[in-house]
Design a protein around this nucleic acid. Structure first.
Length: 414
DNA sequence: CCTCCACTGGAAACCTAGGCTC
DNA sequence: GAGCCTAGGTTTCCAGTGGAGG
């Protein structure tokens, strides 16, 4: 059997750690380091808020804000894990639970996570939210535990509908429990999200507030150099590259996650290129690669109908680069569906899907009024057309649509 | 000032696919 | 098996609307 030498080398490289990385995971999103630079103040604050739970006392609820990549999640997880470790040492009946509300998605699944944190198995679906809440409450009381709950990206739970019933129920639970207790730590990157909440929930949740400011370029540099020491082979990282990563991320509201991504991808680029160190040039390449991958990933995993909508926006973009309108998109979309013998969705639905694509940044949709000619959305591509072709033409069904010539649409958009 | 276009976007109902309880 | 529940995607219906043209 012929040996694929290139592949062999990649595997070997990986086993020996290559000449760049010692431990790439250190730069990953879910890695919580031993030390969180420039967050001592917040750690102390949060620590002193939750500390009473160790002796079974009731803990104030807290609310944490800060933009993405300011270390909220890291600090929350860090403090919770230390709290849990301490409680095991002193033998208190404390539980901690971290839930990412955006990943969980619905009230039901958040509650299901809470149940699981008390080793209470619940089905994926099938029972009423109220029933779930009752079981959770019963378990809390029977085990006489004090639970500290971090609800990360708590805004994701509210934004969709004005449904803050779960938060309301939890704050109510908080007041009525006798032998046990729960305390809530809400984490959000949206400063205005409290406006969507019931006043009682707000007052209950914001007993304490901790604010996370964006990192400065220097602070990012400290964070990166600490992680880099663990992640990279000594001497394989040029200091100016580290400076560049910090500066680029600082420009984007001091986002540490972004800085770590840049550093990790730059390392990967260098490693793949067989380079022995990570240069500024690698960081520049990484910057482009991250942007490119963001689009291609989003595109690849899009549901079928959204892909077809993008193709119709792409077709119209060729003919009218100044932008098209909902009606035109829908017309072409319906034709394309016809080509692949698919039942088109309604225009109302397409209007909604266009909004979703806009939020993802794959399209730019803006409501405009053409006076006599009505009110609609003006739509342009948010992704370079080349990327759309690159990704979607690999899909068998969608690929054939690129050669389709749309009929002339009724035009009025200027 | 009034009309009226081509929609927008809210609300509610419906459907499917899962699952529980009795 | 009946009668509930869930999520998530969709359809149906419709009141609301910014502003060019009359």
């Amino acid at each position: 059997m012929p040996l694929n030498q290139g592949l062999e080398r990649i595997f070997d490289n990986f086993l020996t750690g290559g000449n760049i990385f010692v431990n790439r995971d250190v730069l990953g999103h879910d890695y919580i380091p031993e030390n969180l630079p420039h967050r001592d103040e917040q750690i102390q604050r949060l620590g002193s808020i939750v500390a009473p739970s160790l002796s079974g006392s009731k803990v104030s609820n807290a609310f944490i804000y800060g933009k993405t990549g300011t270390g909220k999640t890291a600090v929350a997880k860090y403090v919770l894990s230390r709290l849990e470790a301490k409680s095991r040492v002193v033998g208190s009946s404390l539980r901690v639970c971290y839930v990412n509300c955006r990943l969980a998605g619905t009230n039901y699944r958040v509650l299901a996570d809470l149940c699981r944190s008390l080793s209470l198995e619940v089905p994926f679906t099938g029972i009423a939210v109220n029933e779930l809440l009752k079981r959770y409450e019963r378990r809390l009381e029977s085990d006489r535990v004090a639970e500290v709950i971090a609800l990360d990206e708590i805004d994701a739970l509210i934004k969709r509908k004005e449904d803050d019933s779960l938060l309301y129920e939890l704050t109510r639970l908080n007041e009525t429990l006798v032998g046990s207790s729960i305390s809530l730590i809400g984490v959000s990157n949206d400063l205005h999200f409290k406006e969507f909440l019931d006043a009682r929930v707000v007052s209950c949740l914001s007993e304490e507030e901790v604010v996370f400011k964006p990192y400065s370029a220097d602070e990012l540099y400290d964070i990166l150099s600490e992680r880099a020491r663990e992640a990279f082979v000594p001497g394989s990282l040029v200091d100016s590259s580290l400076r560049l990563c910090s500066a680029l991320a600082a420009r984007e509201h001091g986002d540490a996650r972004r800085a770590l991504d840049l550093l990790r991808v730059a390392g990967e680029v260098a490693e793949r290129g067989g380079s022995k160190d990570v240069s500024e040039e690698h960081v520049r390449v990484a910057e482009h690669k991250i942007e490119h991958d963001r689009f291609t990933d989003a595109l690849r995993f899009l549901p079928l109908h959204q892909k077809i909508i993008l193709v119709s926006a792409f077709d119209l973009d060729k003919a009218y680069p100044e932008g098209s309108i909902t009606g035109d998109i829908y017309q072409v979309y319906a034709e394309l569906c016809n080509v692949v013998s698919l039942e088109p969705l309604t225009q109302r639905r397409i209007s909604g899907l266009l909004n979703e694509l806009d939020i993802m940044g794959l399209l730019n949709a803006r409501v405009v009024s053409f006076g006599r000619h009505g009110r609609t959305k003006k739509i342009r591509l948010g992704v370079p057309a080349s990327i759309i072709v690159e990704v979607l033409s690999t899909d068998d069904m969608i690929g054939q649509l690129f050669s389709y010539e749309p009929k002339r649409v009724s035009r009025r958009a200027a």
